Computed example of a mutant assay.
Amino acid sequence: MKVNQISKLIKDTGLSPERLAGYFQVSNMTLRRWLKKPITYKIPSQYETNLHQGILTLVRDGLLPKENEIVLESYDFMQTLSTKNSFMMMDLSVEQFEKGLQDEEGTVDLCLKLGQKEESLSYIQNNEEKLKEYEGKSTSFAEKISTLWNVLKSTDVQRTHKYVAIGALFYLLFPFDFIPDAIPGVGFLDDIAVLTIAVDYYLRAHKPFKS
């Protein structure tokens, strides 16, 4: 982010530098020091996350429209940061993640790897409400999520098999998608494909879970 962008934020929001500094979680002195620099001066990278978080908070507070160019930049930055952090947590690279989705066998293997991570199950349990939101999107989503949730909770399913259910549900909730959910019409195709493969994997061996 550059000084001219911060100057524009002051103009667009009508906030004083002091109030904007609060959103950015920096001191008034620091912000004013930046504003004295040339307009092309790039703000040090260690402040980047705070700046983008502050911009999204400005949107939340109704001080900036979502369509603002710098807001879109902040959304992209925070999405990328979330993705990087998630991949670090999963000990997977983007390349490994995408390669695993190229065929049915690879998808099952990927779900198995994701499901073996303790963090995956915790993530699903902490986002149960989000799963319910997905169930409301379509009957297809609801049936597949319900089946995999039953597999996850069952005492009659092998642990290895449960890992695939955990991995598939985690993929649905994961902040990185092979096809971003925001793309109209196709954004959930990869999610449906992963869920379908995981459900089929179970139905071949566990008929009682069939909806």
Score class of each variant (00 low, 15 high):
residue 49 T to D: 12
residue 79 Q to S: 13
residue 55 I to W: 01
residue 46 Q to M: 14
residue 54 G to R: 00
residue 46 Q to D: 15
residue 55 I to R: 00
residue 10 I to C: 04
residue 65 P to G: 03
residue 47 Y to N: 12
residue 107 T to G: 01
residue 77 F to W: 13
residue 62 G to F: 09
residue 108 V to I: 15
residue 36 K to T: 02
residue 94 V to H: 07
residue 57 T to Q: 15
residue 26 V to Y: 04
residue 103 D to C: 02
residue 66 K to R: 09
residue 14 G to D: 08
residue 8 K to D: 08
residue 68 N to M: 01
residue 20 L to V: 06
residue 57 T to E: 14
residue 16 S to D: 09
residue 102 Q to K: 02
residue 13 T to L: 10
residue 13 T to W: 08
residue 60 R to P: 02
residue 67 E to R: 06
residue 33 R to Y: 03
residue 8 K to A: 08
residue 76 D to H: 14
residue 19 R to N: 03
residue 31 L to C: 04
residue 61 D to L: 12
residue 91 D to R: 06
residue 40 T to D: 14
residue 22 G to T: 07
residue 94 V to K: 12
residue 51 L to R: 01
residue 42 K to R: 14
residue 66 K to T: 05
residue 17 P to H: 06
residue 28 N to D: 02
residue 93 S to G: 13
residue 44 P to E: 14
residue 107 T to R: 01
residue 71 V to N: 04
residue 94 V to R: 13
residue 18 E to H: 03
residue 30 T to Q: 15
residue 51 L to S: 01
residue 83 T to A: 14
residue 52 H to C: 01
residue 17 P to V: 03
residue 44 P to F: 15
residue 41 Y to D: 09
residue 76 D to I: 13
residue 33 R to A: 06
residue 89 M to A: 11
residue 79 Q to C: 05
residue 86 S to Q: 13
residue 25 Q to C: 10
residue 58 L to F: 07
residue 86 S to T: 12
residue 16 S to G: 10
residue 32 R to I: 04
residue 69 E to C: 05
residue 59 V to D: 13
residue 59 V to P: 14
residue 62 G to E: 10
residue 12 D to F: 04
residue 8 K to W: 02
residue 70 I to T: 07
residue 42 K to N: 14
residue 61 D to G: 12
residue 13 T to K: 09
residue 29 M to E: 11
residue 49 T to K: 15
residue 33 R to G: 00
residue 49 T to E: 15
residue 23 Y to N: 04
residue 11 K to H: 07
residue 60 R to L: 12
residue 79 Q to L: 13
residue 69 E to M: 11
residue 53 Q to D: 07
residue 108 V to R: 12
residue 79 Q to R: 15
residue 79 Q to N: 13
residue 16 S to K: 13
residue 102 Q to W: 00
residue 105 E to P: 00
residue 14 G to P: 07
residue 65 P to Y: 02
residue 98 E to R: 10
residue 57 T to L: 14
residue 22 G to P: 03
residue 85 N to Y: 11
residue 62 G to M: 09
residue 102 Q to N: 01
residue 32 R to F: 01
residue 85 N to S: 11
residue 29 M to W: 09
residue 22 G to S: 10
residue 97 F to P: 00
residue 90 M to Q: 07
residue 19 R to S: 04
residue 56 L to W: 10
residue 97 F to H: 02
residue 64 L to A: 08
residue 18 E to K: 10
residue 105 E to V: 07
residue 37 K to C: 01
residue 73 E to W: 06
residue 75 Y to A: 09
residue 62 G to K: 11
residue 88 M to K: 15
residue 72 L to P: 06
residue 15 L to S: 10
residue 29 M to Q: 13
